[in-house]
Amino acid sequence: MNDMRIAERDVSTSETKIAARGVQVHYGTTHALKDVDIDILNGNVTAFIGPSGCGKSTFLRCLNRMNDTIAAAKVTGSIKLDGEDIYDAKVDPVQLRAKVGMVFQKPNPFPKSIYDNVAYGPKIHGLTRSKAELDNVVETSLKKAALWNEVKDRLHSPGTGLSGGQQQRLCIARAVATSPEVLLMDEPCSALDPIATAQVEELIDELRGQFAVVIVTHSMQQAARVSQKTAFFHLGNLVEFGETGQIFTNPRDPRTESYISGRIG
């Protein structure tokens, strides 16, 4: 715990981007998420930590309605993005997902070229007007994801031909390319080496200037390094949510305390 460098605690008192109240998720008979209340702030990185199977990914998927694709999943409660309920019947999840980008737990590049992977989002949302502009978006996105130098000479070779860590960074570039307002990242660094991890963490820090970032991680050090706010989940409950410094140095709940000191998980 001593080796942890805790990120500068400049929790801006800025406005709430996402407000979740009483969120419950059932997968058939499994009660995966129990009554979660959380506020995700603009300009902040929020980290979700907790033991495997505690519902971190499930909650993340609620935030851009990816749970809609799972027939068995039932979400109740309210989640508001800029004050609008995203589960309102009038909301088109497609529009929502353009605003709330996502990097999945397992790298899932399209079986297309590296270029097409990154260009796909901007293309379908009509974000660019010319080929040159699109090229530019692809380049900056790949640079942000710390992948540009490795792939700049083979942009037109398949994205699935990259290594696992490179694929994950490609997925980050793909999510960044659509300039979302919120970026959800599910263990983006689990397949990365320390250098790429450092680059991605740098990116996360950079991104929070423009977006609200939510990151799920199993690395307490990472949560401490990049996040301003931390939420600890355990068995479907949100046990504790607060400023990262406080969670790591002075947890209120005994379960948080034992998890970060390595006794549960």
Partner: peptide
């Protein structure tokens, strides 16, 4: 076709129709 491809397309904000015609059908 692996579901992760559908997730990937939906995740960048493609509609279901776009997901099917751009990614699932070609595969």
């Amino acid at each position: 076709v692996p579901p992760s491809i559908r997730d990937a397309a939906l995740g960048v904000g493609a509609s279901r129709m776009q997901t099917v015609f751009h990614h699932v059908l070609p595969l």
